[in-house]
Computed example of a mutant assay.
Amino acid sequence: MCTSIFTKTMDGKYLLSRTMDFSFPLDPSPIYMPRNYTWTSQAENVTNENQYGFVGAGRLLGSSYFVADGVNEKGLSIAELYLPGEVQYQKEAEAGKVNLAPHELILLLLGNCATIEEVAQKIETINLVDLKVPMLNIVTPLHWIITDETGRCVIIEPTEKELSIKENPIGVMTNSPCFEWHVQNLRNYLNVRPKQYEPAKFGEFTALPFSQGTGTMGLPGGYTPPERFVRAAFFKEHIDQAQDEAAGVTNNYHILATVRIPKGIVVTDEGTQDYSQYVGTMCNQTRSYYFNHYENNQIAKVTITKELLESDVPIELAADRNETFKELN
């Protein structure tokens, strides 16, 4: 599952937001991954060293860190989402390539790329191998939405052996089918609009609208990827543009509220609940990461500071899981 949106504020801030919808309890926290962090790839047991520090959401799984999204010190932001039934990973490592498990790609890109141009060059050298995530014991069918400080937004969908980037002019991504299908599906919703529909005559009878909101009749209301894509694209397109970063984060939370999945609403074939475990937002300009758990609507914030950049070990920054209230009396 998962939904991601990319927005711009009036004062030039770029914000990438995502819901993390999953049935396995990931138990993630905001985490800072340091410069010069070394990690060993599963595919060929090779040690990699990152150049850049970044902050995002993740956790330690076994002896390796799992990161699902983040922004690095150069203003590159990435979020990984599911693309089941579409991805094509390779069965074995390939000589002359950087061989990675799919869930390791985000760690490599955030740790070593400053721009989308550098990402495009880097992925030419990468071979994604069909390997399971430690502890989860599943191969994660992933695709990635990527933005940088220039405001460019692209995606990577590993549906062929060679990886490449696709431009994302809509600034929305969900799950299967592939991105091009979702783009064409928007043509089914040309009638949906914020403006109220006018009264219509049927013979001698004039039908008046039921209150407000008739322009939004036709918006899909379910939680399938196509429905979430359409809702996210519509709300992103028509919401009042935010003036600054704080308002932009608030806007993105309002947009994603239309696609966040409460517990009990989506149940898998195995009987587990697929729900929105957290929402994360990255600001490319300020290198800030915003986060809240399912259980707490209070938004936590972590910014890449000089002090963080001086750390040489990963730092987990716990966000409160308990709902907080501002007492007014």
Rank of each mutant, 00 (worst) to 15 (best):
F210P: 00
N296Q: 04
P177A: 12
E117L: 09
N175H: 07
G280V: 05
G85Y: 09
L109V: 11
G280Q: 07
T174P: 01
V133T: 15
S29K: 08
S63P: 00
V172G: 06
K301D: 04
E73T: 04
E327R: 13
L60V: 09
N297Q: 14
T9N: 03
T272G: 01
V249E: 03
P169F: 13
Y275L: 06
N99E: 08
V46W: 06
A246V: 12
L83N: 07
Q285F: 08
G280N: 03
L309R: 14
N284F: 05
K97P: 06
M33Y: 05
E157L: 08
D130S: 14
T303D: 10
E162D: 15
D240W: 00
T150H: 01
P169R: 11
R231Y: 10
F291Q: 02
G271N: 12
F24R: 11
P177C: 13
V154K: 05
K91M: 10
G203D: 07
A247M: 12
Y89R: 05
L107G: 04
R35M: 06
V249Y: 00
P141N: 09
N322T: 14
N99L: 11
A79C: 13
L317V: 12
F235C: 02
V119G: 00
L61G: 11
I31R: 02
E160K: 14
I156Q: 06
E167A: 14
L109W: 03
E94L: 12
C113E: 08
G53Q: 08
F205N: 11
F66G: 07
L131I: 10
N48D: 00
E323N: 06
P225R: 05
S64Y: 07
Q51G: 00
K91T: 13
K201H: 11
P225D: 04
S64F: 11
P158S: 00
L100K: 11
Y289A: 06
E227V: 02
R18S: 02
I31D: 04
H238F: 15
P262K: 07
F325T: 09
G218H: 09
V313C: 07
Q241F: 03
I78D: 03
R152S: 12
T7Y: 02
G12Y: 03
A120H: 04
R187M: 08
P102W: 09
Q277N: 09
P314I: 03
P134M: 05
N72D: 08
G62R: 12
I146Q: 07
V313P: 00
A93W: 01
G70P: 06
